[in-house]
Design a binder for these strands. Structure first.
Lengths: 159, 159
DNA sequence: GTAAGTGCAAAAGCTTTGCGGTGAA
DNA sequence: TTCACCGCAAAGCTTTTGCACTTAC
């Protein structure tokens, strides 16, 4: 009987193969650390977890692999905005449209979307909601144009 | 006739007074730089803008004042997650509940909220939406408890 | 065997902090 | 006059990069 962990491991091995990534012990343990933690961990937290099983691992390796996993779609980032403080002077409630490519942020007035409701039963126990933010993620006009140009150039280059 | 800029300035002066903040030229220019820019600027971008009017300003002053403005509610941050990469292994679409105090992130299954629609007319021209993310912001149970304890202690301290 | 991955250390952002001089109230 | 604020410089994080060694394929 293949237990869940074995199955998850096979899954991960397959995903590495699909992405052309070498299947190393370090990668396996890093990946498991993220999956096992229910906390949306930071690289530092992953480092602490992984070090319990691989004391010789370096933080640099965590970062390199996290980046590899993000690039290949094995993991995701919780937010597109990490790494830079972005400010807001529009103090009236509103929502955002964000370009995944250039990180441009556009405001949308609150009334443009229907108010979103969440049944209390879906919330963590005792959580007090103050606000609901909606974020539409996509690609802005100029980034679409840039991508088209780039892929066209790549095509011409390969012929 | 008081133009818009004069009025905005008076507004800002009043807000500083309300918050017990000194009204300095630097603060005025920093604030105006954020308001004038439609781009949800970073501190670095604000620095560039402000330097055109106050060449001697330092980046440290930008950071100090941005922090002051955030603490006093004169400005807001676009996201709570800036400053730390947070990872996600749950690749199925879902939404988040975030504690504004400890930054804990909880998953909510996508079906828990009705799908959010945005009329194309509300979008920036040419923007291609790929995804909609909903984030409920509030305070988790343990942070509520901690705050209650803290404010109780403060009360006892002041008597 | 070869290309990719690892560990280590240095460096590159971004942000905070401390201190002496300056300016707002 | 006093206290908060400014500019400067140093330090503290987080993240990236380069290089020699090792490992997966």
């Amino acid at each position: 009987m293949a237990d869940l962990r074995t199955q998850a491991l096979d899954d991960f091995r397959r995903r590495c193969k699909d992405q052309g990534l070498a299947f190393t012990f370090q990668r396996q343990v890093i990946y498991e650390a993220v999956v096992d933690s229910r906390e949306h961990p930071t690289p530092e937290l992953i480092y602490e977890q992984v070090r319990q099983r691989i004391p010789s691992i370096s933080l640099g390796t965590i970062y390199k692999n996290v980046k590899t996993f993000l690039d290949s779609g094995v993991l995701k980032e919780v937010t597109l905005h990490h790494g830079s403080l972005r400010l807001e002077s529009n103090m009236t409630p509103h929502h955002h449209v964000v370009c995944a490519s250039c990180k441009a942020i556009f405001d949308i007035k609150e009334t443009a979307v229907e108010s979103v409701r969440l049944p209390t039963s879906e919330l963590p126990a005792g959580f007090a909601i103050q606000q609901c933010r909606v974020e539409f993620v996509g690609v802005c006009k100029s980034c679409q144009t840039a991508r088209r140009k780039k892929s066209k150039a790549a095509k011409e280059c390969s012929t």
